[in-house]
């Protein structure tokens, strides 16, 4: 039984066209041309309890719009979404108590107060009992290691610390579903990893269903088994990340470094398709099944091999390829 069901969900935004220039601005006071964009076009997907699904796509693809419809901020133009048996845009309290939305670009914490005050407020808003609150808070604070910063005004925290507090605020009421919109945006590498590790662990331990959107491929790679790729409001892939790589990247990358005389390009081409070349370092694109044999051949050849490495094609590369194909 899926916990989130989306059928033909569509969102159309209307907006007004305005030509540049003063005269056009004056004209537009009287007559405006109304235009429509389909931000989300009849998408379908189901998500089961405990899944951690990554939404991937360029800016303006419809990821955030979809999350906003699932959390009830936006009315769908047509189609329907059912989450935990509720229709999100009716904004029933029973539904709202069972999910949380964290937007990396917008904060819900009180800027001028220590994070603790916002936590207490959320406890009241979500009607969490005193003992649950204490238990959940201790656990989250421990997991995220933020004991020292609870009593510091939020505006004095670093972006990474603030994001951790945002997550605590969102999880105090133990939501069954967590929508994360760009949770690692703007964070440094270490902070990104901390947040990522936390999300992974939390999903594993609590079986919370999580939908995550991100621009950072590392987030998706580390966290999500399943990805939904959205572009121009349409789902162009929905399935396992591993399958995606196999389908769109039938090759692996073989990186070989040489010492001594190195290798000429011609010599390198004997082993397979050369993707990158310089005298001392080459990259070969080799079919998945042949990779072992090719590596063996290289090692047993007379070329002065220094090191050899087998690598997956970069996911960024795969995704770029998919989008490129889509646009053709």
């Amino acid at each position: 039984m899926p916990i989130i069901e989306v059928k033909n969900l569509t969102k159309v935004y209307d907006y007004y066209k305005k030509q540049p220039g003063l005269i056009a601005s004056i004209k537009s006071l009287f007559k405006r041309e109304k235009l429509f964009t389909e931000a989300v076009k009849a998408i379908n997907f189901n998500i089961d309890e405990g899944e951690l699904v990554g939404f991937l796509g360029p800016n303006g693809a419809g990821k955030t719009t979809t999350l906003k419809m699932l959390s009830g901020i936006l009315h769908p133009s047509s189609g329907e979404a059912t989450v935990l048996g509720f229709t999100p845009h009716k904004r029933q309290k029973e539904y709202q108590k069972q999910f949380a939305l964290v937007m990396g670009q917008k904060n819900q914490l009180w800027w001028d107060l220590p994070a603790m005050e916002s936590f207490i407020l959320n406890k009241e808003i979500y009607e969490v009992s005193e003992s649950d609150f204490k238990h959940n808070l201790d656990e989250l604070v421990e997991l995220l290691d933020i004991k020292d910063i609870l009593d510091i005004q939020v505006r004095k925290l670093s972006l990474g610390q603030r994001m951790k507090c945002e997550l605590v605020a969102a999880l105090l009421h133990r939501p069954k579903i967590l929508f994360l919109d760009e949770p690692t945006i703007g964070l440094d590498v270490v902070a990104q990893k901390n947040i990522r590790d936390f999300i992974k662990k939390y999903n594993k331990e609590k079986k919370t269903t999580i939908i995550l959107t991100s621009h950072y491929m590392d987030d998706i790679r580390e966290l999500c088994k399943r990805v939904v790729i959205i572009d121009h409001g349409k789902i162009i892939y929905d399935g396992l990340l591993d399958d995606l790589i196999k389908r769109y990247a039938p090759q692996k990358i073989l990186k070989v470094t040489f010492n001594g005389q190195g290798i000429t390009k011609k010599e390198a081409e004997i082993f397979g398709k050369v993707a990158k070349y310089n005298q001392y370092e080459i990259e070969l694109e080799v079919g998945r099944d042949e990779v072992k044999d090719v590596a063996k051949n290289i090692l047993s050849s007379e070329f002065p091999v220094d090191d050899i490495m087998i690598d997956e094609v970069d996911i960024d590369e795969v995704i770029r390829k998919i989008f490129k194909e889509e646009h053709q």
């Binding site: 009830g72 901020i73 904004r91 709202q96 999910f99 937007m103 917008k106 808003i125 979500y126 009607e127």
Partner: peptide
């Protein structure tokens, strides 16, 4: 600024 969204998803 869209902060209203934060309020709309909460039970209050």
């Amino acid at each position: 600024q869209g902060t209203l969204s934060n309020f709309l998803v909460k039970p209050f």
